[in-house]
Write a protein that binds this DNA or RNA. Structure first.
Lengths: 192, 192
DNA sequence: CGGGCAAGTCATCATTTGTTGACTTGAGTT
DNA sequence: AACTCAAGTCAACAAATGATGACTTGCCCG
């Protein structure tokens, strides 16, 4: 290996990834900057240099994470497939943990909590847009948000709680019941 | 008011309630024993006296909380009603917060995390038992656990995230979509 | 009434942890 | 080879916090 020393960009990136893992796994409060620095093999003062503070590190790590329930296909048939893929924890190859968990384990910083609410509400809006015309059912947005709630709950039960049999269920086992839920919550406007 | 001084039972109870509120709202790490003691108007050393340690206080507060998705009626029709009631955050009159949140915001103590997993799995088993024969569908337990996941997600989105319109949705608005989900996940064996 | 004991307080300690300014080192440039 | 500046290290501080043992006070029982 060629341990590229004195590479600011690489160090910064490594810090981001270590921070994301810690924050996601043990939460904001239990993550210590010394641990993050040690993971990378770097001095803790570098975190201040690059991110200013612990809160800054958290926000940077959050911004570098994939969005929850983004990139949903506008095709209803493919929607269930993509939902299933994003709910399975091992479907984030480049990430060891489910990205939505970091949102939930955040600090109490007002900026973060507000952004979290917006991210959740935006996910519901994306689901609604992908599933069909919004006016098909009066409470369509509420129903879409219930679907987001299901996604959040699945992520929590799989990645944080480890509940069985849900944790070990593969995409195949999840797809069928998920399709039933999607059909129940978001009636297909083309199929009255 | 008659501030009953020197009443060990009352003081202990007050400490438990204050702790539950703090743990639920801001999580284990961010809850300080000084804050809990101050809420009750008592010295922090009493917490050690009654509960031994912070971890002991947490476990005692957890044990004093109502179980999530307990007391489900064995009647399928009433199941949705009870689910709806337990998902609405204001349906716990004696508690300001949803009890499932304290489970999620727990410390990393192995005893607690193991108990949490068991509590979730037991909730799924209770739903399954209330909804009908377990053998009606092969993956019935997985489906019941998805219902628990929905409950966890709804609790998180309502009480911790504050996502709209879900947070302001009342029992009436929730019952209809919830019934659709229950029917989709747990097919009624009496109605093939 | 007064002795005993539990209820409650006080002051303090040790540790953890975020923050910070001064210092050192290495790589590229001239 | 000397210079420069950013990358990185070091040591230390201050605040927060859980834990703890000694001390005080009020209630109850004889």
């Amino acid at each position: 290996m060629t341990p590229r020393r004195r590479d600011a960009a690489a160090t910064r990136q490594a810090l981001l990834e270590a921070a994301r893992t810690r924050f996601t796994q043990v939460g904001y409060e239990s993550t210590t900057l010394r641990d993050v620095a040690a993971d990378v093999g770097v001095n803790l003062a570098l975190i201040k240099r690059y991110f200013g503070s612990k809160e800054g590190l958290f926000k940077a790590a959050l911004a570098a994470s994939p969005r929850f329930l983004a990139d949903l296909p506008p095709d209803r048939a493919a929607l269930v497939g993509e939902l299933t893929r994003q709910l399975a924890a091992d479907s984030w190859p480049e990430f060891g943990e489910h990205p939505v968990l970091m949102l939930l384990r955040a600090s109490g910083d007002p900026t973060v909590t507000a952004g979290r609410r917006e991210a959740i509400e935006a996910a519901a809006a994306r689901i609604l847009a992908a599933a069909g015309p919004a006016d098909s059912v009066p409470d369509a947005l509420l129903r879409a948000e219930l679907l987001v709630a299901l996604g959040v709950g699945v992520a929590v039960l799989r990645s944080a709680v480890g509940a069985q049999p849900l944790t070990d269920a593969g995409p195949d086992a999840l797809a069928t019941p998920l399709r039933a839920v999607v059909d129940a919550l978001l009636p297909d406007p083309h199929r009255p």
